[in-house]
Design a protein around this nucleic acid. Structure first.
Lengths: 245, 245
DNA sequence: TCAAACAAATAGTTTGACATTTATATGTCA
DNA sequence: TGACATATAAATGTCAAACTATTTGTTTGA
């Protein structure tokens, strides 16, 4: 019926006003907020209060603060990477385990292939995916394992991006980012890596042929497979695969 | 190659130490941090610096601060609701539209039904779903429309919870919460509502019979349908269905 | 021309004071 | 004794003024 009110704290009020200004577009990325002193005059509060508001806004992720002569609080571009990082940070405090992430990822990617991509994908996208696999193989030949890992994830991220659905892209990237840590701590064996390349190629081929349903199945089981391998290997190395991230 | 270092700011250091303490479990939910004065002595900094750290931690969502006699900074329980809220806040600053949310939701729920639920669901779960529909119908008869809406969403949230996968549960709830605002601004017509009840019942029946694939399809199209209705109605009322949330 | 010194602007921090809020203890009166 | 008012104490909330540290632009001098 009634909603609880809580007046208190001027810094909160300032935070809200700034957030709204950004939301409205009155403050655009790279815009500079007035200096702490000026903000104090504008809002009629002391520098201390302004600084507290700035700390909140900074933690919220909407501004960056630089020191020095041309320093100050600058509105941050809320790009994908920033949003993913923020969400990732929040999720780290929840009790999420690798198997949960893996399962979610497998399911989301299947939907990406089966439902979300068909109306969007172009031959150019397929070419880009193929290039990605080629690059990953090159990295593997050159023994650049972290680069290879990164490129491999790039394959899946590219798939997500084809959907042009920011919700899907973001959720997928959050999951991939949080998962990647586990991959980095497991040495990849040759058959494992080559199987990955083969399955990636198979997926692209199916996509080119318009066999989205089949591509989705291959992808689902590909991710389930790889994740199972990671879980097994992690257990051997007694890593905390089932503990929180 | 190299990773950027950025020392500066004692409050940052304090934030990190507190976060780590919480992560380690040295600080559990409902624990009280020392008072600002004491923290100042502990870390060897002034109260102002402590307060800035506290504002960051508060915005991060890991503490709540109460004023007054038994006041202070208390470690917050990072429950599902809190995590969902945090992520929702972040997502509000991204350029997400209702159709994106709806599509993502339809896909995720199909996967929930097809892939994630079958190994988990029990007859008791089905009973709970049926009860939910009954309750929603009761609300509808009593003309309690917001209650009905809330209960209807509860049906889908219950489905997600059956997976026992926190990643899925969280992502789903974030999407539902962000979507709900659009539903609230559209008057529901009788045929629309009754169709929803019918489809919910159909889904439960299919689940009872173990026809998960079919249940998934029904659910997918149910959500797609309802969302399309919302989009159309919103356009009539010239709501910002395609603007950011 | 280049480098060192300087100047200006801005965030980072400290200190000390006072205001406000809230739970609890204390006191007073019926 | 019980209920209500009042005082008290322990927090957070806010302010003001100064000092420090850092960054950047500008001037100066060899």
């Amino acid at each position: 019926m009634f909603t609880k009110i809580k007046q208190n704290r001027m810094s909160e009020d300032i935070v809200n006003q700034v957030l709204e200004a950004i939301s409205r577009g009155d403050l655009a990325p790279d815009d500079k907020l007035p200096s702490e002193k000026e903000l104090g005059d504008i809002f009629g509060v002391s520098r201390v209060t302004i600084r507290e508001a700035i700390r909140s806004l900074e933690q919220f992720g909407v501004i960056v603060v630089r020191q020095g002569s041309r320093g100050g609080a600058y509105v941050k571009k809320m790009d994908q990477e920033a949003v993913v990082n923020q969400i990732g940070n929040v999720l780290k405090m929840a009790n999420v385990t690798f198997p949960h992430l893996a399962m979610a990822r497998a399911s989301i990617e299947r939907e990406i292939l089966v439902e979300l991509i068909p109306s969007k994908i172009t031959p150019a996208d397929c070419d880009r995916l193929t290039q990605n696999i080629d690059l990953a193989e090159a990295h593997y030949r050159d023994r650049e394992s972290t680069e290879r890992l990164h490129t491999n994830f790039g394959f899946h991220t590219t798939l997500a991006r084809i959907t042009e659905n920011p919700v899907i892209i973001l959720m997928h990237k959050v999951i991939v980012d949080l998962s990647s840590h586990f991959f980095e701590n497991v040495e990849a064996t040759t058959p494992m890596v080559e199987k990955t390349f083969a399955q990636h190629r198979e997926i692209v081929e199916l996509l080119r042929k318009g066999q989205f349903q089949e591509a989705g199945e291959v992808c689902f089981h590909h991710i389930a497979d790889v994740s199972k391998t990671i879980v097994d290997k992690s257990k051997q190395q007694s890593l905390l695969v089932s503990r929180r991230i």
